[in-house]
Write a protein that binds this DNA or RNA. Sequence first.
DNA 1: TTTATATTTGACAAATATTGTCCAGAATAT
DNA 2: ATATTCTGGACAATATTTGTCAAATATAAA
Lengths: 112, 112
Amino acid sequence: MQHIQFFGNHLRQLREEANLPLRKVAAALDIDPSTLSKIERGERVANEGMAQIIAQLFDQPVDELKIMLWSDRIAGELCNEENIPEILENTRKKINYLRAQSLEQGKLDFEE
Amino acid sequence: MQHIQFFGNHLRQLREEANLPLRKVAAALDIDPSTLSKIERGERVANEGMAQIIAQLFDQPVDELKIMLWSDRIAGELCNEENIPEILENTRKKINYLRAQSLEQGKLDFEE
DNA sequence: TTTATATTTGACAAATATTGTCCAGAATAT
DNA sequence: ATATTCTGGACAATATTTGTCAAATATAAA
């Protein structure tokens, strides 16, 4: 699987604007500076916990960062596939369906 | 990560309509019958090679099966996340962008 | 230039996750 | 009731991801 690095690019930009060395941000994230370097360059992937911390650290909306992170991840998985629009639309529908279902389920549990 | 089983349900339906036991289809896929059982029930995941073989075996459009497989997989990864529409739309845009880029790159290589 | 600091790169083991395989028990069909 | 099919769990084998470190490279400051 290929790594997409919009998140990493963004993070590097934030970090450089703040004039912080990898060392500092890595410490905040509790990871090795070399790992952070790889994240910024798309060799490794961040996780949601990191997105949280970065959001705080640079006063960014956490939702945007998470969206960036997830879409990087999924884009990396799908980028060599065909029928991308169909796959994504199907995904959206399935999740909708599943959520509607668990709502139903919730209702039933409540009513019983 | 949770497993979504639209693909598995579909496969089970095809298999039962064809009156084939797990054993037979598993042999065609070169996997253990119990693994196939698990795939049909969403405990394990199929891969693209299996989708190919299933398409042949049951004379189904391979693209549809692959779309089903991939959207199951992505839906499983995302089903507990927020901002699903945004994530999926961002994913689509990124892949578009990356593909436009490699076209560009291709053109440059060719022109040089 | 030297020296210090920051970043990149590669290697490797540790931790996780996935997959293949088998078997015993449950369910279903004959 | 016998045979066949299916399920569920266990377990090792494999693959993937992650953490960690040290050496090489690049950048900045003196």
